[in-house]
Every structure is written in C-alpha cells, then in structure tokens.
Amino acid sequence: MTENVLSGWNRKIQPPAYTPDYKSSRARSPRQPLIKPNFRTSETDGPVFFQGDLGPNDNNLLCNFYHDGDPIGERILVFGRVLDENGKSVPGTLVEIWQANAAGRYRHLSDDYLAPLDPNFGGCGRTLTDEDGNYSFKTIRPGPYPWPNGDNSWRPAHIHISVFGGEFAQRLVSQIYFEGDPLIPLCPIINSVPDRPAINRLVAKLDMDASTPFDCLAYRFDVVLRGPASTLFENRLEGN
C-alpha cells in the first residue's frame, strides 16, 4: 500500500491568473492567495470512465458529424501519450478535444466569425487512453481566426485538449499548437506562460513516421500531468 502525494503546480512555468495582455483575465483572476491544504484531500480521488461511456467514432472528427461527405481541410492525426511527471503512463483516462474548422470557425452558438461552417464538421472528439497512456484523434487541421483582444488579434491554429488523470487535482485543460505557425509568438494567451521551453512543449511536432501515406500527416503531442512527488509510505518503510 502506498500513499502518493501529488506534486504541486510548478508556478514558474504555469500561467499566473492575472495576465493583463490577455484582457479577459483581468476581471476573472482571483486576487487573494490560494489556500493550500496541508493534508490529503478529496481531490486525490477522481472520476472513472469506461469504454462503454463512449461511441466507436467519438475520436474520429472526420466522420463523427457526417452529413453528406468528408469535412474540408487538411486531414491529420493528432496523437501522443498521457504520462505523469515520473514518466509513468496514465492509462484509461478521458481525453477530450474541441476545435475550429479549417476556416477558423467554431460550430458554436456564440461564434459569429464570417468564415463558413462546414456541414460535415462538428469539432469535438473524445477517447480513453490505452494501457500505455496513448491516445489519438483523426481530424482536420484547424484554421487561425480573429478574436476581440486587440485591434487585430489572431489566434494561432490550435486544438483545445482536456485531460482527467486519476485524481481530480490533476484536471488539466490546455491547447495544442502546430509547428511553424508564425502567429504563436504574437498570441497573448500563449504568452501567459512565463517559460519559453514550456511554450515549445505546447507545440505539436510533425511525425512523418506516424503519418499515413496518401491519407494524412501526423502530429505528436504528449501530455504530462502532475505526478506523485514522492511515495511517502514507501519511503517510511525504507527508513524503518
């Protein structure tokens, strides 16, 4: 029996709540210090999902909103591994993604960008990681789009990703960017991250070995969740 203690958020690399260049954060960032419980908490457990919760095409955005054909755009495979900070795979965990279509338009009641919707593209997918922590999605590469932050602000192409992990405290949302996108250094949301290497790790890398000839290119994106910082109980045993 081991009792793991989750490592904390690394505040040197994680974005702070208040990042004024990203205007929406100004009024939505707590100003009081966070309270840190010094005991094992309820958040060290977390929900469990089952294969039966999902449908067979949930991770295939090329066909999960089929109307009368394939979606328009560059067909890609986005794949990777969910692991923790000790390099241990996180199997059976729920990964969810959402994104704009190839033109940069979201299928969402609140998106009024003039670019067109794609009748065959919904823009969401979900899957459980396999026993080695691997996940994959077939989709189209999203387009960049303008947003109301400055006079002429554009988001780089990105896919939103949500990961559970085994503990509610590991809950993470982030964004997957694409190698070579010139909009990346201009984006205040990306620049909310105070650490250049951490930003680089948000950029999915082209992986020709994983691509399918005459079908789709592949981009790799690994997700590292906060992991057990130490195994206190085991250490104690060793000390005895």
């Binding site: 900070e85 390099g87 299928r107 969401c124 993470l172 982030s174 964004q175």
Partner: peptide
C-alpha cells in the same frame, strides 16, 4: 524527467468539447 504540461484557458467555446448540446 518529464515536465508538467502548462495550462491554457478553455476559451469561450469550451462547450463544444465538454457540453456539446449547449454549443447548439
């Protein structure tokens, strides 16, 4: 040693991925 992935905002269109019917 792997380093924890950094968080990014869920953005205004989060419903598409997490509560799809609300997106329409």
């Amino acid at each position: 040693k792997p380093i924890q992935t950094v968080s990014q905002t869920a953005g205004p269109f989060v419903h598409i991925g997490l509560v799809t019917p609300q997106a329409g």
